[in-house]
């Protein structure tokens, strides 16, 4: 195995593109190192991207924030303005692993690991995040929901890396929230999860919404039917029930050691409802 720490994204993309064997990108390493330890992967090349300028920065951009691919959960949580604007995303990112893992893990790593249970990803979907990709053919932007394609797989081409993620400026009276279910209070992988972002008007009526569910399908998924269930409502009991039902109806989960189909289907609905209520209140709607 070789270890490389390039100084630019272009060089990182070139190294990854040129390597014929298995490669891994190293940001926080909290997934890659586990894969190495378990012998799940024996990469020929590991590219540590932390030497790339800006990769560990949080920068205001067009009223939102651009977050470098190697920014850790702890750094996100320590950024007051970011947390105030995107409480759902930053809380989600801070649920990944332990406080030790928080010192290293990144949202982009969480995304590229391709797990349907990744905590940051439903919140990023809901927040309409856009990733910037560096590759052999230069730079491109992509909607975050186009990245995961299957468990452990992404749409990134060989040699492509994500260098940052943009959280676009929210319109006024918008807010987000993320909830996950785990058996303990910490340290577990989500058994089901829901990220919600919504906007309300002066009357408290929801005018826009994005709802994403995690751990209930092969990838995190954006569920339009959930958004439709609450848009045009004041999230009254009927809308809550419709949202819950739409979320459960969208689930295509599996039975595994972490939960049953039945459990995930039911709890995803509960979480979508509860997350929507939190987002609604944060946006300025009454409880």
């Amino acid at each position: 195995m070789q270890y490389a720490k390039p100084k630019t994204a272009t060089e990182a993309a070139r190294l990854l593109g040129a390597e014929t064997g298995v490669t891994r990108v190293l940001a926080g390493g909290t997934d890659v190192m586990v894969q190495l330890k378990a012998g799940m992967v024996e990469p020929a090349l590991i590219v540590d991207i932390k030497g790339i300028p800006g990769i560990r920065s949080i920068t205001p951009e067009a009223g939102g924030f651009r977050i470098g691919a190697a920014v850790s959960g702890l750094e996100l949580g320590d950024h007051a303005a970011l947390c105030a604007m995107f409480p759902g995303v930053t809380e989600a990112a801070q649920l990944i692993g332990s406080k030790q893992v928080q010192g290293r893990c990144s949202m982009v790593g969480n995304l590229c690991n391709g797990s349907p249970a990744a905590d940051a990803v439903p919140a990023l979907f809901a927040a309409n995040a856009v990733v910037r990709i560096e590759g052999p053919n230069g730079s491109r932007d992509a909607a975050v929901e186009t990245i995961p394609t299957a468990p452990g797989r992404t749409s990134l081409a060989k040699g492509e890396i994500i260098t940052s993620v943009l959280l676009p400026a929210p319109v006024p009276h918008s807010a987000d929230a993320y909830l996950r279910f785990i058996p303990r209070t910490e340290m577990d992988i989500a058994v089901a999860s829901a990220g919600v972002s919504l906007t309300i008007d002066a009357s408290g009526t929801i005018t826009a919404a994005r709802v994403a569910l995690g751990a209930v399908a092969p990838t995190v998924m954006l569920v339009d039917a959930c958004a439709a269930a609450i848009i045009g409502t004041k999230l009254d009991a009927a809308a809550q029930a419709a949202l819950e039902q739409a979320a459960s109806a969208a689930c295509k989960p599996i039975d595994d050691k972490r939960g049953t189909i039945e459990f995930r289907t039911k709890v995803a609905g509960v979480l979508a409802r509860r997350a929507a209520l939190i987002a609604y209140e944060r946006a300025g709607g009454r409880k």
Binding site: P183, R184, T185, E186, M187, D188, I189, D256, K257, R258
Partner: peptide
């Protein structure tokens, strides 16, 4: 201990063998 149909242990680690943590 969770076994699969193949008779193999599915949760041989502290991630999925869930002992109580301080916040529990």
């Amino acid at each position: 201990y969770i076994y699969g149909r193949d008779g193999r242990l599915q949760n041989a680690g502290f991630l999925d063998y869930r002992i109580p943590v301080a916040s529990d």
